[in-house]
Amino acid sequence: MPTVLITTGATVTFRSLLDYVVSPEFIENLSKFKVSRLKLQYGNEINPTTNEHVSRDYFERLVKQSEIVSKFQLDISTDRKSDTDGSITYSSTKYDFVLEAFPFSMDIDSHIRSADVVISHAGTGSIIDALKLHKKLVVIVNDALMDNHQAEIANEFAKLNYCVSHNVNELFGTEKLINSVRSLLDGSIQLTEFPANKKEIVESIIAEELQKAV
């Protein structure tokens, strides 16, 4: 039973992507393809003056509005160990489906390892984390962000066939995202293996410059 992980970044709440995935249609499509667990990292944006957790409020509002709890007969269990890593689990025995939602994780790698497909926002770190663990990856570009270097890097990686990439705005009213997830799961889309990088080079450059800095 496959697991899908969605990462939306930590600093800014990726509202449009959350709008799309926290919906009965998306969840129903997932369970059609036998996805039994959806892990959702929904963001850790905190209002500095009021101290409100913007991302969590937004996510919880979506859960209410979309009425997914009643539609899928979800049981809710909360595990708020701390403010930064508290997760909420919504599970349905009737539909064999679990939604695990958390604001952000200090150990995102273990979540990535547990996933069969990763749907990631277009932040460089997040993309690289998934590729390094050789995960099937769909990158979603946030068109609302001011500087759209995110689109550049997503397109570049898609061109190299390391991942599939979509703009968030082109998802609504279509099944593009679910089709990509399905094609990656059943193997009809084959991605190119991401090459390992040469990290020793940075240590060597620092060492060379330390030697010159006398």
């Binding site: 020793e200 080079i201 240590e203 060597s204 620092i206 060492a207 060379e208 330390l210 030697q211």
Partner: peptide
């Protein structure tokens, strides 16, 4: 050649 920081300090 690749260098390591601990060797050169």
């Amino acid at each position: 050649d690749l260098k390591s920081i601990s060797d050169i300090t």
